[in-house]
Amino acid sequence: MLARPNRLTRGAEYKAVVRRGRRCAGAHTVIYVSRVVTDGPARFGFIVSRQVGGAVVRNTVRRRLKALCFESLDAVAPGSDVVIRALPSAASASFAELRTDVTRCLARRTT
Rank of each mutant, 00 (worst) to 15 (best):
M1G: 09
M1P: 04
R4V: 09
P5Y: 08
P5S: 08
L8M: 05
L8Y: 10
R10C: 06
R10H: 14
G11P: 11
G11I: 13
G11A: 15
A12T: 14
A12N: 12
A12W: 13
A12S: 15
A12R: 15
Y14K: 07
K15C: 03
V18H: 02
R20K: 14
G21F: 03
R22G: 04
R22S: 10
R23V: 10
C24S: 10
C24V: 04
C24W: 00
G26L: 12
G26C: 09
A27W: 00
A27T: 05
A27E: 06
H28K: 08
V30I: 15
V30L: 12
I31S: 07
Y32K: 02
Y32Q: 07
V33Y: 00
S34P: 00
R35I: 09
V36P: 00
T38N: 10
T38V: 10
D39H: 13
D39T: 13
D39L: 14
P41S: 12
F44V: 14
F44L: 09
F46L: 14
F46P: 03
I47H: 01
I47T: 13
I47C: 08
I47Q: 01
V48D: 04
S49N: 06
S49D: 06
S49H: 05
R50G: 14
Q51V: 14
Q51N: 13
V52S: 05
V52Q: 08
V52I: 06
V52T: 08
G54K: 15
G54W: 13
A55Q: 11
V57L: 10
V57D: 03
R58L: 12
R58E: 12
N59V: 14
V61L: 08
V61F: 11
V61D: 04
R62K: 15
R62M: 11
R62W: 12
R63F: 10
L65W: 09
K66F: 07
K66P: 01
A67N: 12
A67C: 12
A67I: 13
L68G: 02
L68D: 01
L68Y: 06
L68V: 10
C69I: 08
E71R: 14
S72P: 00
L73G: 00
A75N: 06
A77E: 12
S80W: 02
S80P: 00
D81V: 03
D81F: 07
V83E: 00
I84L: 14
I84K: 04
I84Y: 03
L87R: 14
L87K: 14
P88S: 01
S89L: 09
S89N: 07
A91F: 05
S92T: 09
S92E: 06
S94I: 03
F95D: 00
A96R: 07
E97C: 05
E97Y: 05
R99L: 01
T100R: 12
T100G: 03
T100D: 05
D101R: 13
D101C: 13
D101T: 11
V102F: 02
T103L: 11
R104K: 14
C105S: 05
C105Q: 05
C105A: 08
C105L: 05
L106E: 02
R108L: 07
T110V: 13
T111Q: 06
T111E: 03
